[in-house]
Amino acid sequence: MYELRGIRKVFADGTVAVEDISLIVGSGEHVAFIGPSGAGKTTLFRLLNLTLRPTAGALIFEGQDVSALSDAGLRRTRTRIGTIYQQQNLVGRLRVVHNVLAGYLGRWSAATALASLVRPRDVAGAGRALAQVGIPEKLWARTDELSGGQQQRVAIARVLVQDPDVILADEPVSAVDPSLAVSIVTLLRDLSHESRKTLLMNLHSVDLALGHFPRIVGVREGRVLFDVAPDKVGPELLAELYAGHRDEELQLEQLRDGKVSFGAACRPLPGFRK
């Protein structure tokens, strides 16, 4: 699906967000990315969904080097990659139905897109997607009147309507209630599993990552520190990953003591007593 060779991203202000990342992700794989804040995970995802362009290195999607794509080719490729953001990135003033149907924008003509704002095109499809994420009654609500968790579900419904081959979820649960976090991660995992989509997820919570993903990539200072199965991720590795980041080290302490509220939903973590 993805092949990254020596990807590097330097922003205009000189900040190096991604130092050097090489990675291969196969079709249908589920991969969780963990690491301290500022490690470059979000930038990596913005490179993967073709919103940003790498400063150096090759990004290959389905055998195609994306730097060689034309404007139209870039748009066509983006329709195959669905993104769920940490902040929901919805248009608050539009009704939920339009935010969900925005998943079609990559395929609709300009005229269809415009007409749908007046008379929504596939109301049934939007309704089905909302039913899948558990809020069918919110179809006609104004988006900014929904709670954070409901908005995150709308964002997932938009990706369902888009029906991509890959789902990128960038910290989809760090802005929602902890009790919702598990259900949203499980929802995304199951949905991707049923439709054989590739799922890449950035997670702040080590607990959720180790509990739900068969492959864990640790990112630190713009590089891949480890890329292993969850049972190989022990306390030493995590301590190295989060070294010098106070808040996350605290999270590890709590994991050790089994204090994290949603930890109960996961199997016991290797190296930690519950």
Binding site: R46, T51, L105, A110
Partner: peptide, 18 residues
Amino acid sequence: PLEALQATGASRFAILVY
């Protein structure tokens, strides 16, 4: 929100309107 719309493959016109 514009970034999110662009990530779905939307054209610049669609991003403007939505």
